[in-house]
Design a protein around this nucleic acid. Structure first.
Lengths: 110, 110
DNA sequence: CCTATTATTCTAAATATGTCGAATACTCGA
DNA sequence: TCGAGTATTCGACATATTTAGAATAATAGG
């Protein structure tokens, strides 16, 4: 998953899908809760084939769901996926509440 | 950050550092709250130069702090870093608290 | 100063990744 | 069935990444 999100274009696609139109939230009408592939690539300057490739990678990584709807293919992110990722970093020692803010150490190699 | 964590070896190093010995938690004595570079690579089967390279990448990405301590170089993860990552995925729509388990995102919701 | 220990830099290689264009597939409506 | 619209696969190339070994640096102790 993290490898898939390591690419700037894929991260942008994932953000677009996860930050908008959650199930239950419905940022627009009930049929528009997902994006189609074409919409997703609008901002980014990449060829359709590249877009398709990246979406496929995101899907293979289990980050993005895809479903054909007529001519279009709609994509979305399951909330559980975000939970899983957030949970990974909110491990036993993550200071989610308190933040002692210790000494600030920068790069070691001088 | 995500790109840096996309590599299996780097992710393993990061996990080792973040899952153990948080500042304030002190998994052992107060001077052993960090790992030195050599310890970190023990499990993984990589050359010292490769280990150093990966640690450098993690440091450049702002994921791992490093500090020389005599012959050794100690590494650790700031809790704030974990917070930042967890927060990124606990966005406005992530169902972090309640988990309604909403089945599919398909047209079900209206 | 010399040596052992620890870690980094440098260089070169094998491999993986990102990208696009052309060709192909899928769907809908005439 | 054909054509338009949408998306994917395939082939190829340029670039990036991973990796290890040799050489180098930094440190502590004699």
């Amino acid at each position: 998953m993290l490898k898939a999100l390591g690419n700037p274009h894929r991260l942008a696609l994932f953000e677009r899908l996860s930050r908008c139109c959650k199930p239950g939230t419905t940022c627009s009408t009930k049929d528009e809760i997902h994006h189609c592939v074409g919409e997703l690539g609008e901002g980014l300057d990449i060829a359709p084939s590249t877009l398709s490739h990246h979406l496929k990678e995101l899907n293979r990584a289990g980050l993005v769901e895809m479903e054909r709807r007529g001519k279009e293919v709609h994509c979305w992110v399951e909330p559980a996926t975000l939970d899983e990722l957030a949970g990974f970093f909110s491990g036993p020692f993550a200071s989610t509440e308190a933040r002692p803010h210790r000494s600030h150490t920068r790069g070691a190699t001088s």
